[in-house]
Design a binder for these strands. Structure first.
Length: 281
DNA sequence: ATGGCAGAAGCATTCTGA
C-alpha cells in the first residue's frame, strides 16, 4: 500500500503535475497541503476520473488540505473535532484549514499542514507552538493504542540538525529551534516513528528547497515533510523515499512528495488462508 | 539587515509562505 504526502503550493496551479505523478506512481492514498482553494473551486473531477475519491478542507488563498484515496473514507474529520475544539476558548484553531483525517482501509490517516511560524519572536510562532499542542491533545483523544495510524504532512520543522543543509547557519532559528522540536516530540510522544529514518540515517536528504537563491540547483534544502507511523506499523514499512525529481518539474512546488510502501495487504492470517487453499487443491 | 521567488487576489501592489 503506497501512501504519500505532498505540499503542492496550489492544487490548481500544480494540477497536471499531480495527476501525472499519480499516473506514474499510482499511490493508494495521497495527502495534499497548501491546496490554496475553497472547497467549491477544488478540482475534484481530474482525480475522480483516475478512480480516486477526494475529501477536502480548504479556504481562499492560503492553507488548505485534502486526501485523495483509492479506498473509501470513514470517520472523516475536517479540522479539530468539536470535543477538542471547545476546550480552547482563546483561539479558533479551525479558522485556518490545516487538518483533515479519516479512516481508510483500516488505517487512520491524519494529514496536517503545520503553521510556518515566521520567526521566533513573532505572534505566528506562538500560534505554531499552540497549534502543535492542540494537535497533541487531538491525538490523545482520537488515537487508540491499537490503532494503525499515519500522521503525515508538512510539519515545517526539521526534526534534527541532519535534516538541514547548513545546520550551523540556521541553528536555533525558525523550523530548527529547540522549542519547535520539543513541541513536535510532544505530538509524537514516543508513539510514532519517522518512516524516513528507518531506512536512511545520513544527512543530505531534503523535501523542501526555497524558490529563492537557486536553492534547488545548489541542493540547499530542508527535510520538513514527514510520514510518521504508529509503532505497531513499523514492521510493515517496506520503504520511504522522497520523490525529489518532482522538484525539477516546470513551475514546480517548492516541496517534493514523500512516499511510503506499507505492507498491510498481507496479514499473517491471510497467508494461513492461502496455505489452506493450496493444500485443499 | 534585507531581499531573493512564487501564488492568490485582482489589476498595482500587497500579503503570505519557509
Amino acid at each position: 500500500m503506497l501512501i504519500a504526502t505532498w505540499n503542492v503550493n496550489s492544487v490548481r496551479t500544480r494540477l497536471s503535475q499531480i495527476t501525472n505523478w499519480i499516473n506514474d506512481v499510482k499511490p493508494d492514498i495521497l495527502c495534499l497541503q497548501e491546496t490554496k482553494v475553497t472547497d467549491n473551486d477544488f478540482p475534484l473531477a481530474p482525480f475522480q476520473e483516475l478512480g480516486y475519491e477526494v475529501i477536502i478542507c480548504g479556504q481562499k488563498s492560503y492553507n488548505g488540505v485534502a486526501i485523495i484515496s483509492k479506498f473509501k473514507f470513514e470517520n472523516v474529520n475536517k479540522g479539530f473535532t468539536n470535543d477538542i475544539y471547545k476546550k480552547n476558548i482563546s483561539i479558533d484553531f479551525n479558522e485556518q484549514k490545516r487538518l483533515i483525517s479519516a479512516d481508510i482501509n483500516g488505517l487512520k490517516i491524519i494529514n496536517v499542514y503545520v503553521p510556518n511560524g515566521s520567526s521566533l519572536n513573532s505572534e505566528k510562532f506562538d500560534y505554531k507552538i499552540k497549534w502543535l499542542k492542540h494537535l497533541s491533545t487531538f491525538l490523545d483523544e482520537q488515537v487508540r493504542p491499537d490503532d494503525l495510524v499515519c500522521l503525515v504532512g508538512d510539519f515545517n520543522i526539521a526534526p534534527h540538525d541532519i535534516d538541514i543543509h547548513s545546520p550551523q547557519k540556521y541553528e536555533g532559528g525558525i523550523m530548527a529551534s529547540k522549542i519547535e522540536r520539543e513541541a513536535l516530540n510532544n505530538v509524537l510522544k514516543g508513539r510514532f516513528i519517522d518512516s524516513f529514518r528507518i531506512f536512511e540515517k545520513d544527512t543530505g536528504y531534503w523535501s523542501w528547497w526555497d524558490y529563492r537563491n537557486n536553492a534547488y540547483e545548489l541542493n540547499k534544502g530542508w527535510r520538513i515533510d514527514h510520514i510518521y507511523v504508529s509503532k505497531n506499523l513499523s514492521s510493515r514499512l517496506k520503504s520511504c523515499v522522497i520523490e525529489r525529481n518532482q522538484r525539477e518539474n516546470l513551475q514546480p512546488s517548492d516541496h517534493a512528495p514523500v512516499l511510503i510502501n506499507l505492507d498491510i495487504d498481507n496479514h499473517d492470517e491471510d497467508f494461513f488462508d492461502d496455505d489452506d487453499d493450496l493444500f485443499g487443491i
